[in-house]
């Protein structure tokens, strides 16, 4: 038996919007730690890792570890039927083939049940090793979204370079080139507006902008984004999910052959 009650139901709505375009079908894993998901896109270039810790739910009951295969497009359709202020409860029976999403309005005058069919998904779980990253950049998520959107109108690939001067985002295409440099800036009124560049070693890596743009669908979840880079390793683009967890996107670099 599984019963997870999330008072801030809009978080789950936003989480789905952040991953449904990248991944079609995925297993949601439920354990005493929390509600989690790990899935790759169909071309195995990007991986998304989601964790919503059990402590973040108002009520969290998970009698045994459960893996539920869901079509994220269908799940998104159902969650779109929840109001932004609704409390969302996820319910499932052990060994059952459906999951129920219950939406309660804040005033308790409307209660809706949506039952969705589960599916069997053969997915391989990858081990993500702990890595020391050469450079870590924290910036406003809206700024990162703007940069990815702007650069993708010029080229297909972004080169992200971190030096002691700052972080540079570059692209090139048929019509020309573009370079955007951000310098560290911590003298801001609000901490979420800061640009913090932690450089242990300079690093420069190339990534497909199509994926970066897809990651920025998570922008409504968090005011800030953290980008962790190491030579010849996948980049990690992380958005916190309130106080309860995170969405981490891993993207394999383009490497000169």
């Amino acid at each position: 038996m599984l019963e997870l009650r999330l008072v801030q139901g809009s978080l789950l709505k936003k989480v789905l919007e952040s991953i449904k375009d990248l991944v079609n079908d995925a297993n949601f894993d439920c354990s005493s730690t929390g509600f989690s998901l790990q899935a790759m896109d169909s071309s195995h270039v990007a991986l998304v890792s989601l964790l919503l810790r059990s402590e973040g739910f108002e009520h969290y009951r998970c009698d045994r570890n459960l893996s539920m295969g869901m079509n994220l497009g269908n799940m998104s359709k159902m969650l779109k039927c929840a109001g932004n202020d609704d409390i969302i409860t996820i319910k499932a029976d052990d060994g059952g083939d459906t999951v129920t999403f219950m939406f309660e309005s804040p005033t308790q005058d409307k209660i809706a049940d949506f039952e969705m069919k589960l599916m069997d998904i053969d997915s391989e779980h990858l081990g993500i090793p702990d890595a020391e990253y050469h450079s870590i950049v924290r910036m406003p998520s809206s700024e990162f979204q703007r940069i990815c959107k702007d650069l993708s109108t010029i080229g297909d690939t972004v080169v992200i370079s971190v030096t002691k001067e700052g972080v540079k985002f570059s692209t090139a295409g048929d019509i020309g080139t573009a370079n955007i440099v951000l310098r560290q800036n911590t003298t801001v009124d609000k901490p979420e507006d800061a640009i913090v560049i932690e450089m242990n070693e300079p690093v420069s890596l190339s990534f497909a902008l199509r994926y970066m743009n897809s990651f920025t669908k998570a922008t409504p979840l968090s005011d800030t984004v953290t980008i962790s880079l190491s030579s010849e390793l996948p980049v990690v683009v992380e958005y916190k999910v309130a106080e309860m967890g995170y969405i981490r996107y891993y993207l394999a670099p383009k490497i000169e052959e």
Binding site: L126, A252, K254, E256
Partner: peptide
Amino acid sequence: VNQQRQITSFFGKS
């Protein structure tokens, strides 16, 4: 030429 790598060439099955 920059070749797109796959995530599976960095992270193995757990």
